[in-house]
Simulated scan of single mutants.
Amino acid sequence: MSAVTMDLNADLGEGFGAWRLGDDEAMLEVVTSANVACGFHAGDPAGLLRTCRAAAARGVRIGAQVGYRDLAGFGRRFIDVSHEDLVADVVYQIGALRALAHAAGSAVAYVKPHGALYNTIIRHAEQADAVATAVHFVDPALPVLGLAGSEFFDAARALGLRTVPEAFADRAYQPDGTLVSRREQGAVLHDVDEIAERVAAMTGHGRVTAIDGSTIPITAESVCVHGDSPGAVRIATAVRDRLIADGLQLRAFV
């Protein structure tokens, strides 16, 4: 019987110019997949190339983290963009990161939406279809990383895209399985031991405790740790160590 595997992903490449966000070098020693910004919500070309090179050097898979065109808001504000414009925006972002990854000796292996776009396309069918259509236009073989049961996954599967469900190590969940808004207290978790225990329940038992105390089912082929959270490297390391201790083999999903 083959070992059970789990991917560990983080959002990287989110600095801009002289402003640094998170410790990409340290996170790349821990994760198996890197969701690299594409310049719309964060990231500048030189910094993104450095991140791609660092990921390539460590054998970490590179994913295009596409978002709204919103540098000032870090892509965490909803934008009522048309289907046509969103398709073009996502195609553009994937294309830019593909070129940078190629220059770094690697390739874009998957696509993951970021921030407000990620949360919007859980229920917003038109924008979900736009993102899925854009990925399919670029390369129908690219998997998409997202939330199980979302409109995005429905649209992606309708186009024949592989969907990879993920769980969030350091975010609180609503009883319906969506993430608690960052505007609400308790949305982001910081206690390392608590986070490790939650991940163990997610990956070992397929469940997580929602913010109201209820237990809800969760499906995950990948676990996400946010690279910009305080203590992100320590959290990611604790999650990795717990997964390994529980007998899972850390391996990228693609």
Rank of each mutant, 00 (worst) to 15 (best):
V111Y: 07
V138I: 11
Y173T: 11
D89N: 02
Q249S: 14
A196T: 06
A141K: 10
T5C: 10
D85H: 12
L86S: 03
A64G: 09
I216S: 01
G160M: 05
H205E: 15
A101N: 07
D170Q: 13
S82D: 13
G47Y: 01
A238V: 02
D7W: 04
A103H: 09
S150D: 07
G73R: 13
V4I: 10
A148C: 11
Y118L: 06
A72N: 13
G206M: 10
H190V: 05
T215R: 12
A26V: 04
G227Y: 04
A130M: 05
Y92C: 06
Q249R: 15
V87E: 02
V208I: 10
A56L: 13
A34W: 00
A72T: 14
A26L: 03
R182T: 03
D228S: 06
A46V: 10
G73H: 12
A54R: 10
L28W: 03
H124W: 08
L21M: 15
S214G: 13
V223A: 11
D85F: 05
A187R: 01
V135A: 07
L48Q: 00
S2D: 14
Y118V: 04
L248T: 05
V91T: 03
R171P: 08
E151M: 13
T178D: 06
A99I: 08
R157K: 15
R69Y: 02
A156Y: 08
Q249K: 14
E29V: 03
A125H: 12
G146R: 06
D228N: 06
A132S: 09
R182Q: 04
A220E: 09
G213I: 12
N119Y: 09
A10V: 02
H102Y: 12
V91H: 00
G146M: 09
V223E: 11
Q93S: 01
A134P: 06
V90I: 12
G204H: 10
C38T: 12
L21Y: 11
S33R: 00
S106H: 02
A236S: 04
D11H: 00
G227M: 06
G13W: 04
Q93G: 03
I121R: 00
T237N: 01
R53L: 08
A201F: 07
R76F: 11
H136N: 14
A109W: 07
S82Y: 11
L145H: 08
D212P: 11
R20E: 14
A125L: 07
R50G: 03
G115N: 10
L12F: 01
A107L: 08
R207P: 07
L117F: 08
G22H: 10
L86H: 02
A156L: 12
G15S: 12
A130P: 05
T237P: 00
R242T: 09
P45K: 04
L159N: 05
A155M: 14
I218E: 01
G75Y: 12
